[in-house]
Structures are given as C-alpha cells and as structure tokens.
Amino acid sequence: MILPKFKYQRALSIAEAIDFYTQVDGQARYLAGGTDLIPLLKQRLLTPAAIIDLKHIKALKTLSQDDGWLAIGANVALFDLKKDPLVKGYFPALAESLEVTACETLQMRGTLGGNILQDTRCLLYNKSLEWRTARGFCWKMGGQACNVVPNAQACFSNYCSDNAPALITLSAQLKLAGPRGERTIKLEKIFSGDGRKPLALEPGELLTQVRIPLEKTKGTYEKLRVRDSMDYPLVGVAVSMKGSSARVCVGGVGPAPRVYQLNKLDETSIKDGAGQAVADAKPVLNATLSPVYRKKMVGVLFKRAIKKVQREGAR
C-alpha cells in the first residue's frame, strides 16, 4: 500500500521535536514505533505534511526509579518493558497486558507511549479511502453521520489499548511536553470521551513519560479476542489490588476506558461492580463480535479477573 506524501524529520531532543512541529504550523504527526500511525497514513485517515521521528531521542527511552515512582520513557518498547523485573513483580496487571498486546514482533517495535496514544478503531472507519468514499464519510472522518448506528449523533469507535486500562488501575500519570510547556496529568484524564477526537491532547503535545507509583500490587488482565495473537481487544478488563480494595478498568468498548473502584471485595460488591460495568458498556456493531456478546463478556471478564487475583493471592 502506498503512503501519502510528507516530509520526514528526525528529532534528537524533545525541544527539537516541538520546534519542528511549530515550523510546519501543526501539520505534523509524531512517529515512534509507527505500528498505529503508518497504517493510518496508508489508509489516508491522516495526511500530515511532516512526520517527526522521535525514536532517536534518548530521554524518551529511559526506565528509572524516581522518588517513589517508576518513570517509563514513552519510547520504551513493549517487549523490553514486559521483561523488566520490577514491572513483573510490582505491576502484574501491566505485565499481563503487555504479554497479550499484538504479537512479539510488534511488541519489539511498538512503544508504551504509542500504545496509550493510539487512535480509536471501528470496523467501518479503519478502511481504505476508496471504501470510505463509496460508503460516505462518518463523524470521525469529518462527515455528518455514523455508519454503524443510523441517526446517531456520537461516534462509537473503540479505544483498543491493552496497556492503558492496566495503567489506569495502577493510578499511572502521564508527563506531556508541548509548545506551551510541560504538564503532568492522571492517565484517565487524557480521554475526551468523544470518539471523533478521543485524546485530549493540546496541539503539538507529545508524551514523554509514564509514571506509576511504586507500590506492590496484585493484579491481572483479561482480554477477549478471536485470535490468540495480533488481535485488538474486543473487551479488555484490568484489575489491580492493594490490600482489600481493587481498581478495575474496562477497555475495548467505546472511545474511553472506564474505571471502577471497589473498596470491598465480597460477593455482593463484585456482583454490583460487574453489573455497573455491564450497564455502562455500550458496544455497537463495529467490531468482529456481536454487541450483545461483548456486553455480556464485560461482566464475565470483570468477575473472572477479580476472582483470579483473589485465588492467586490466597495461594
């Protein structure tokens, strides 16, 4: 498949990357692993004038401990991160979500930052330009309709990161840098909830670091998919537990992951939490499994994940 025309710039520092961005009046996209970006370019879902390559910025590749936090550079490859003993020992939900992301070859190329900042997906959006022109443009393409749900005024595309739900259960924060300076926000605040523009990033902002509080947790990640390799989650449920409370995050359904706090872990609380997650999940016919099945599986995986962690904890 042929790429659209663009300029290529290799940035050697964060400041230089932002500088390049402002030079082309914001008509640019940042490139890390490219496993999400390049297919979007090939399908003409994005047509930037310039691509700014961040892979040679050393500061984005470091993994360090800093004052009670694990600071992960945005360009750390998923494969390297899942091998990290600290991630395995302290953040099992993240480690498991990394293990089931795409496949090994893509994990070696794909980065944590890129995984978090991936675009939302829809069966009728991630298509070639010819296909989309024939069908008519939807909200996310700048049109005036949803091609999945007739007369809908919103976009139902799915946010398909495996790692973001796991990181949300671990109370992770994002460090962003942009033309207007740096800021640090909670990971869940990055989601706008609008499938048309799912990430609340300011123009020119790039993710520099993912920060996780260094506290030992128990946890797991449950993923529904058709193939055991490569597939995006059709539903993904991450759980992290500290003491007798748990944070649960449901991804893969709709444009933003949803987080639930369970302060007690008895049968009733788990059942109520799962019931709430099922009620909140509004899957539509835009993925490879039926919405009814995916909705039901939100509850099933919610309960299964918590029970699994409880069982392992008791061992």
Binding site: M1, L3, Y8, G34, T35, I38, T105, M108, R109
Partner: peptide
C-alpha cells in the same frame, strides 16, 4: 530486531 518492513519508513 525482527520488524515489519512495511511499517518502517
């Protein structure tokens, strides 16, 4: 590193 050359510029 093995990689997809169709995704590399």
């Amino acid at each position: 590193i093995p990689l997809r050359s169709c995704l590399v510029l």
